[in-house]
Amino acid sequence: MDWLQIIVLALVQGITEFLPVSSSAHLILVPVLTGWQDQGLAFDVALHVGSLAAVLIYFRDDLWAMTQSWLQSIVSRRLDSDARLAWAVLLGTIPVGLAGLAFQNVIADTLRSPLYMAAGLIVFGLALGWADWKHRGQRDERQLNWKDVAFIGFAQALALIPGTSRSGITITAALLLGLSREAAARFSFLLSIPVIMIACGLETIELVNVGAATDWSAVLAGIVISGISAYLCIHYFLEFIKRMGMQPFVIYRIALGMVLILYFL
């Protein structure tokens, strides 16, 4: 890869990973539209590591409190709000993990076409707009009950469909349950941590098994650029939705989906 490709792909990953616009669709489409060769598995790992570092650093205080309370809850069997939130993140990850194991090959073989991505962008974009318009409330992520967590967790499993957007579908589910925009986004970001960890682990195992040569300068640049852009994206997204809501992202998803349909049909 040349440096233009490294910078563009890292920025695309960092910016779209936490926005409700489908990072996987953008990372698949960039090489298609530019004619670039596939960036390779090692660079994919680097991009995920950068995104993971960003969310860990941004929520470091919350994560520290959640980890302490979670460990105490194992011993005492009593849950405070931090422990409940930690358990919610862990339990909410189970459905997407099971769905990934069961349907990964089917999805990779049949649903990764631009037209399927366009359908996912439009359909789930409209769902996000409807949830934001009709159902959002003032509940906090710490007020989720176990049925709420299961609902959001099963919704997250739909993110395996290209074009859906993991953050988009989890924010949609949280809004449908009456969470505020900020609470829905924060819980979505916390849910991303184990998912990205799992993705990094699986990709690293595959990379070791393949044994391909690694361009370490590209890997380091990918981690740094995607990490910085993802951190800034999280911060400004949370500020943006307080004033503007989700509708600008809905419009973008529909517009991008229509462009893909016109281009590839």
Rank of each mutant, 00 (worst) to 15 (best):
E206N: 14
M117P: 04
E17L: 02
W64H: 14
L202M: 15
V8Y: 03
W64S: 14
R181M: 02
K147Y: 12
I7M: 13
Q5H: 14
Q13H: 01
L121A: 04
D38E: 15
G50S: 02
N145E: 14
S180C: 09
Y231S: 02
I196V: 13
S81K: 14
H26R: 09
S24C: 06
D61S: 12
D61G: 03
S23M: 01
V32K: 15
G257W: 03
I205N: 11
L19W: 00
L41S: 05
L111Q: 06
K134P: 06
S76Q: 14
S226Q: 12
L63F: 12
G120C: 09
V208L: 14
G50C: 02
I261A: 09
V208I: 15
E203V: 00
G222Y: 03
L260S: 00
L220Y: 08
L238T: 06
L27Q: 10
L101F: 14
T34V: 09
A118Q: 04
L85E: 03
A46P: 00
W70Q: 12
M117E: 08
V12H: 05
I234F: 08
A46K: 00
A119R: 07
F264N: 03
G14C: 02
A230E: 00
L256A: 06
F59L: 10
A102M: 15
L19G: 01
